[in-house]
Design a protein around this nucleic acid. Sequence first.
DNA 1: GTACAGATTGAG
DNA 2: TCAATCTGTACT
Length: 192
Amino acid sequence: MPEKLRRDFYTRPTLVVAKDLLGKYIVRKFRKRKIIGKIVEVEAYIGPKDKASHAYLGKITERNRAEFLIGGHIYIYLVYGMYWQLNISTYLENKPECVLIRALEPIEPKIFQGNKKIANGPGKLCKFLKLNKSFYGEDLVKSKRIWLEDWKDCTKKEIVATSRIGIDYAGPYWSKIPWRFYLKNSPFISRK
DNA sequence: GTACAGATTGAG
DNA sequence: TCAATCTGTACT
């Protein structure tokens, strides 16, 4: 039986949550149907010390304030004027830490099963899950239209850690830190 | 008010 | 390799 993830899953330290999110399922209720994707790639952002984080130095803006919510809330924002990025807040309230969901393996609808290009990028998976600004600050623990499940797959997962994508501006240290995690051998990740 | 770059993507 | 297209931020 699938188990819905509760608050205590999200309030643990961010790097623990990030790795544990791999292999979990995002369930999105849309027009009485379920869209489901298995998380295969994530990145961790740990403000205020993380130079690549929107909350670097603890800065709060209209855009990033959802990052400061207690673990389990959605932080969603637009990049390059056209792509939504799905983040999940982690750890405690007023700790601006989050995990960026970068790629999904499509499970439902079945027509997309095996499609390696429908959700293999942060902008594309938001399109796949039909997400937009109306999900800003949504609580994954209480929401009736989006939540996460643990399907208790017995397959052991092998995790690969590499540097994060698209944040060269953060300098040699923070742009190289291995906070991008993905499931080894998954054909559904955003880059090889 | 203006200028500029960004946690991306798909077309050429 | 490049442009699309909007928001936050650092200027004037």
